[in-house]
Design a protein around this nucleic acid. Structure first.
Length: 433
RNA sequence: GUGGGUGUAGCUCAAUAGGUUAGAGCACUGGGUUGUGGCCCCAGAGGCUGUCGGUUCGAGUCCGAUCACUCACCCCA
């Protein structure tokens, strides 16, 4: 037997059955984000490796061991994007978009790549909905961004998720806190897990979200980031909270939430679920005011988030199904002579805007009816030689189980008259059978 | 990268302590009066038991390797 080529590990096919979910999520994302003034931008999947090393951080796991990096035919180091922010910032700088007063809020939807061991909710090619805003440091925007995220999640029908927020401080206050924390961790070093013992040198803040009990205990009495915020950061964070509170958006301050990309500062946030096993973050983001400058652009503040579409859809699918498009009309044909006329009729109906499926290869009327039923067609148009001679067709309403004869020349009109209510793809989530 | 679990029909699963021709449900195809769907009944098709090697008279079953899937660590969306 011939050996079969399989898909690359961790990279999934999205089959027609699942596509309605993806389309629903994407359409809702576009609708909601544009309501808040975001405009779509599309950047390449491949960038120079350097872009990610400089933005995400050389010592982060993503850059150190998870990137799909390769040299092209001319020896230039490239990488498949592991996230979207760096690319959007790059594009903003490259096209000098700060000159365009309309270009401040962006979104992009597409695949990202990280070479991790796949597991539930974590794949090597995965998809994100990503939003970024440049040039606004008003805490009102931080709040609006989170409100928008919650608004979106609510509209697609995701209820039981929690918004966690934190502030990571800024270059004015974080370094001194970092030193305090380092000193503290130095004393507790013997009781830390090996990972954290390493982390306390490289990225001490990350010790906070270690899940090992030992480490959690060792951290009691540790200096708190939120107590060390400078005046500006403290005021900023306070305003964010008060704006959120003002709209009645439930949130939780989580001082342990530290994010894994180096560029984050001040406001960070995550949307958490307890229904996805280990991968509990459905979406997350934060402020990155120094990033654009570090990438050689103007010194503009930035903030953004990313939503993991696979995780989102896993949650939405739990116990529910979403129906795909069904044809309005199924053309059933009897006898060779009727085929051409049926084909012509189907084409005329399609041009009038109806979805039409045909009985290819003929078969008994019974089998054709069965197929129409499986496809969930609203109507079956039956054309046999007998009807053909009289210039009519039988139109059967599958739901009503009623049928009548309609002149072939009047078919398009017949369907256009009852258009509006019956037409269109059913797009509603349904309970399982 | 590290550990655990699982690979039998398109899907979900069976197959007594190794023992003849590997079964069932769903799905699929055809039929149950001539040209009418869902329910029901009948029939049919569909598998080198992930792959390679080993033990044995004999392997779906035991052993090893490999690949894949899966869960967890790690990391993150």
């Amino acid at each position: 037997m011939v050996e079969r080529v399989q898909a690359v590990r961790g990279m999934n096919d999205i089959l027609p059955e699942a596509v309605p979910w993806w389309q629903m999520v994407e359409a809702t994302a576009r609708e909601v984000l544009e309501l808040y003034g975001y405009r779509e931008i599309r950047t390449p999947l491949v960038e120079k490796l350097e872009l990610f090393a400089r933005s995400i951080g050389e010592s982060t796991d993503i850059v150190e061991k998870e990137m799909y990096a390769f040299a092209d035919r001319k020896g230039q180091w490239l990488a498949l994007r592991p996230e979207a922010t760096a690319s959007v910032v790059r594009a903003f700088i490259e096209h000098n978009l700060q000159a365009d007063p309309l270009a401040r809020k962006f979104y992009t939807i597409g695949p990202m790549f990280r070479h991790e061991r796949p597991q539930k909710g974590r794949y090597r090619q995965f998809h994100q909905i990503d939003a970024e805003v440049f040039g606004i440091d008003d805490p009102l925007l931080d709040a609006e961004l989170m409100v928008m995220l919650c608004d979106f999640l609510e509209r697609i029908g995701l209820a039981d998720v929690a918004l966690h927020i934190n502030s990571l401080g800024c270059p004015a206050c974080r370094p001194s806190f970092r030193e305090d924390l380092k000193r503290f961790l130095h004393h507790r070093a013997p009781s830390l897990c090996p990972d954290c013992d390493r982390r306390r040198h490289v990225n001490p803040l990350r010790v906070f979200d270690c899940k090992v009990d030992r480490c959690r205990e060792a951290l009691t009495g540790a200096p708190q980031l939120l107590d060390h915020l400078c005046e500006d950061c403290a005021r900023h964070f306070e305003k964010v909270q008060s704006y959120l509170g003002g709209l009645g958006v439930p949130f939780m301050v989580d001082p342990r939430m530290v994010r894994g990309l180096d560029y984050y500062m001040r406001t960070t946030f995550e949307v958490i679920t307890d229904r996805l096993g280990a991968q509990n973050a459905v979406g997350g983001g934060g402020r990155y005011d120094g990033l654009m400058r570090d990438l050689g652009g103007p010194d503009l503040p930035g903030i953004g988030f990313a939503i993991g579409m696979e995780r989102l859809i896993l949650l939405l699918q739990q116990g529910r199904s979403l129906q795909g498009p069904a044809p309005e009309v199924f053309m059933a044909v009897l006898g060779e002579k009727a085929v051409s006329e049926a084909f012509r009729t189907a084409q005329a109906l399609r041009r009038s805007g109806l979805g039409v499926e045909m009985a290819y290869g003929g078969g008994s009327l019974k089998s054709q009816m069965r197929r129409a039923d499986k496809l969930a067609a609203a109507y079956v148009v039956i054309l046999g030689e007998e009807e053909l001679q009289r210039g009519v067709a039988v139109v059967r309403n599958m739901k009503e189980k009623s049928q009548k004869e309609v002149p072939l020349s009047g078919l398009v009109e017949f369907f256009s008259r009852r258009d509006g209510s019956s037409g269109g793809a059913p797009d509603r989530a349904q309970e399982p059978v």
